[in-house]
């Protein structure tokens, strides 16, 4: 059993067993204000490689990459850091800068890799929600309202007014949050240095609670099948699955993927399986579609 595990995930276990070991453990301050500003500009491409499997992960890595390169001069350390930042990531594209600031401060102080991961995961979900409410549901309608009321009379200045108001708030926040995140992160780390393991544990608790919630809200699968038993009609989703537990399919599918990953299946195969299931699910059979 133990040897089987070791065979399946040699890389992961090497990383998890030595999460604190950096080949170059120096914690010199190398990130400057200019670096922070530069990274804000890069974070405009956060969703350049957006996809359903990791969402913003590669764009996130792109955004912080010059910072990581400056911090980790050791190639092995850089590789470990880059690998962990390629994991699933999704948040609001404006508020991402505060997470960037905090994570960079943690990387610079060579914090435990698991702690960095947990902080990143714990922050992305809530900030996503706050950002949606703040920007898409508040700032955007206000700016659009001002601009469109001018435009309805055929006045092209409306568009300009819209762009100026929106972007003053947009970029003000981005640069402000980046700095705030970095300095708050640096200060918090030095006061928490004594307790890194406990912080890692605490962050993992928040992180996994959030992941549990994200599975329920992000993964979307619904059965569409109606079973005809004599005169009775049973809708698979509403009458059966929802009675057992709502979101049972999203949870079940995530756990299935987790199980298959642990069994050593590559994520690419899992994507293919998912696409095939999706298409089969929507084929109009005589008895209706499955999904």
């Amino acid at each position: 059993m133990a040897s089987e595990n070791a065979a399946i995930e040699p890389k992961i276990s090497a990383q998890v067993n030595n999460p604190e070991i950096y080949e170059d453990p120096s914690t010199e301050q190398v990130i400057t204000k200019r670096d922070l500003n530069k990274l804000v500009w890069r974070s405009l491409l956060l969703q350049a490689s957006f996809n359903y499997e990791r969402m913003q992960a590669a764009g996130w890595l792109y955004s912080i990459l010059p910072g990581l390169k400056k911090i980790h001069k050791n190639k092995q350390d850089l590789s470990e850091s880059m690998k962990s930042h390629m994991e699933f990531f999704n948040t609001h594209p404006f508020l991402v800068n505060i997470i960037m600031g905090i994570v960079l401060a943690m990387e610079e102080k060579k914090q435990n890799r698991n702690t960095i991961r947990a902080i990143r995961v714990a922050m992305m979900g809530p900030l996503g929600g706050i950002g949606d409410a703040l920007f898409w549901l508040t700032l955007l309608p206000i700016c659009v309202g001002i601009g469109a009321s001018l435009g309805a009379d055929g006045n092209p200045v409306g568009a300009l007014v819209f762009l100026v108001i929106f972007n003053v708030v947009h970029f003000g926040l981005r640069f402000g949050l980046m700095r705030y995140g970095y300095y708050a992160g640096t200060n918090a780390i030095s006061s928490l240095k004594e307790n890194t393991k406990k912080v890692s544990h605490a962050a993992s608790i928040v992180g996994l609670t959030v992941v549990g919630g994200l599975i329920a809200s992000f993964v979307q699968i619904k059965a569409n099948l109606v079973i005809h038993a004599g005169k009775a009609e049973i809708a698979l989703q509403e009458d059966l699955l929802d009675k057992i537990m709502p979101n049972i399919l999203p949870l079940g599918y995530t756990l299935l993927m987790y199980y298959l990953l642990k069994r050593g299946l590559s994520p690419v195969i899992l994507i293919l399986i998912t696409v095939v299931i999706g298409i089969i699910g929507k084929i109009p059979f005589p008895f209706g579609t499955i999904l």
Binding site: R54, R117, V219, Y253, M257, Y258, P267, I271
Partner: peptide
């Protein structure tokens, strides 16, 4: 819509 399950599964595998 189902694809995020793979991303979460990969996070779970590590965390």
């Amino acid at each position: 819509g189902m694809m995020a399950a793979i991303g979460f599964a990969m996070l779970l595998k590590i965390m």
